[in-house]
Design a protein around this nucleic acid. Structure first.
Lengths: 209, 209
DNA sequence: TGTACATCAGTGAACGCGCGTTCACTGATGTAC
DNA sequence: TGTACATCAGTGAACGCGCGTTCACTGATGTAC
């Protein structure tokens, strides 16, 4: 039985790390296609990358480590999306809108990647892995940006928020919930995402007297 | 011996349906303990129910059917929670608060059940199953209550919402997102759930001039 | 009444499958001498 | 310069496991006659 369609062309010497990237890429592609985290089996990833299963062990300790790499990539993507949206915007209200737009854009454009970041069901048996802590960090870092964004609006007299931290928590919940439901229930007659997001920001974060 | 299709269906002998309930109960308990949907294997459910794996086939067509039954039970639990909270409350604002409280209470008290209802990753290969449509129905039914609740507040002059449907969508997103994040990131320094929920309702649904 | 028998609620063994992981290996490539 | 050899980037076979599902069966129980 031939496991691999054609024998893979070897990487030149010293470029072994190239396969590592290809494995992560294959895992990412697989996640995008199937949408199910548990379909990221070590063997499926190997098939997708056109290598044999044991080859993966040169680059990853075990199956879990592949998933960790995918998560780390998703983490970078989310942060990048938010920061690229806010770059160069001085007005605090505009900046807050842009940052939230970047967040929701990533979540709706790459729902599988977003899910893998924030939608993991915690396993009570195992202790917290570094990547789960990374998820927490992602949340707290993005969350910090949100708190700062609201606080900046308050300072500029554009928001009447008296508790930016709590308001950021509510706004984050709203964005997260919308992203999840929008992906999970595509048949629901959702209002336009842009309208939803603008409403959330205005009502929750930019309170007027 | 040739087995002939009987013209009329025979009634079960009495005790038969009891095992069905025990199987669903075992699956529910398993879901509560592990928190992971994919740990609901047919064999694990059988072990938990203290029966052999093939016994399940007398009551469920396949593994998927067990999960469907658990989902249906979660559906009933969510609806019951919302309706028990709103029962007998005449004031529209109080009723809206109570209903949302019932929704979030269920989601945070039984996060695994709530997850199994609304957090399923859609499988692109398979067509929509009846239970996925049930999920949609759950959403739409609960959502209908929310729209009506907001509309009642508007009629009573207690809310300035000009688009109860869209505002219900935003409020639902916020409640869903909060429930998911609260369960998934327990280490995050969340404000008090009651305060979060009250803030959501006031800001999103009860707009004052 | 006794008894034969259908029905019921399961059991126990077995199957083929994909999985994660291990182990020994292989053939190409760069390097020391 | 040629050649021996270490290193590299993988391969291929095999393992034990839990899984979903099937099949033939079993022992208890209610019922017809």
């Amino acid at each position: 039985v031939i496991e691999v369609e054609s024998v893979r062309e070897r990487n030149p010497r010293g470029q072994g790390a190239r396969l590592r990237d290809e494995i992560v890429e294959a895992a990412t592609a697989l996640l995008d296609e199937t949408g199910r985290e548990d379909s990221l089996t070590l063997r499926a990833v190997a098939r997708r990358a056109n290598i044999t299963a044991p080859s993966i062990y040169a680059h990853f300790a075990d199956r879990e480590a592949i998933l960790d790499a995918v998560i780390e990539q998703a983490f970078l993507g989310l942060i990048a999306s938010v920061e690229s949206h806010t770059a160069g915007i001085a007005d605090p209200v505009e900046s807050l809108h842009a940052g939230c737009q970047g967040y929701v854009d990533f979540a709706t454009a790459q729902p599988r990647h977003y899910r893998v970041l924030f939608n993991r069901q915690p396993d009570p048996d195992e202790p917290r892995t570094p990547v789960e802590q990374l998820s927490d960090l992602t949340g707290e870092r993005a969350f910090g940006l949100l708190v700062d964004g609201i606080a900046a609006c308050v300072e500029a007299g554009r928001s009447g928020s008296v508790d930016p931290f709590a308001d950021a928590a509510v706004l984050w919940s709203a964005m997260h919930g919308f992203a999840m439901l929008y992906d999970g229930l595509p048949h629901f007659p959702w209002p336009k995402p842009d309208y939803m997001l603008a409403t959330m920001i205005d009502r929750i974060a930019l309170i007027h007297d």
